[in-house]
């Protein structure tokens, strides 16, 4: 049995004992509710039937086996689960899968592949923008979106002139990446990778 399978079996046995207890307390157990979902993930149409409680993150990882997107805190605090929805970065752990009917999702797997890297992926490798790598897919998805947000003129907390156009300065990129935590502390190399890409695009 794989490690993933073992963890899954463990969780299932916990659930089996936990459910009757809470059911006895409230009198009537609420049955899980299933819903159909059709969306596009990394350019491919996918249809799923999911428990309404399934987050976008869990649908990607558990239902579609796209395990590049990582679960860190599962509460929107760490950014490891960052993906792009119709080009906009969000925390996939704080969004229900059923709320993404018809959406176009891009995960780290869709951004680029080992033989066809996205410029940001290549820059992270070149500048050593990671150590353990766990936060990296979220960092890269966020970094790609940050450069887009700056280009679109969206202001940040450190933008000096609200009516001017923000630039891809160190301060701007650091502030805008504050929703992605790196426990290894690769921040300065992440910044170099982003600067590299920003300069090439500009």
């Amino acid at each position: 049995m794989s490690r993933r399978g073992l963890l899954g079996a463990g969780a299932a046995s916990v659930a089996a004992t936990a459910v009757p207890v809470s059911a006895a307390q409230v009198g009537k157990p609420a049955a899980p509710s299933l819903a159909k979902l059709a969306f596009e993930v990394n350019g491919k149409k996918r249809t799923l039937q999911v428990d309404t409680r399934t987050t976008l993150l869990d649908a990607l990882r558990e239902n579609l086996q796209l395990t590049g997107t990582k679960k860190g805190c599962d509460h929107g605090q760490c950014g490891a689960c960052t993906v792009l929805v119709d080009g906009v970065r969000i925390n996939s752990c704080l969004s229900l899968a059923v709320m993404h009917e018809g959406d176009k999702i891009t995960t780290i797997e869709g951004l680029g592949q080992p033989d066809n890297l996205h410029p940001m992926q290549a820059a992270f490798i070149k500048h050593d923008g990671y150590q353990c790598g766990y936060c990296t897919p979220g960092q890269i998805c966020s970094a790609v979106a940050v450069l887009g947000e700056i280009k679109a003129g969206i202001p940040s907390h450190v933008t000096a002139d609200l009516n001017g156009r923000p630039t891809a300065s160190n301060d701007e990129m650091r502030e805008r990446m504050s929703g992605n935590i790196c426990r290894c502390g690769a921040y300065s190399n992440i910044l170099e990778a982003m600067t590299d890409v920003a300069e090439k695009v500009a």
Partner: peptide, 15 residues
């Protein structure tokens, strides 16, 4: 504008 961008993270503000 200033108050909004002083809160949360880019990902959260997008949602």
């Amino acid at each position: 504008s200033r108050a909004i961008v002083a809160g949360a993270s880019g990902q959260l503000r997008n949602k």
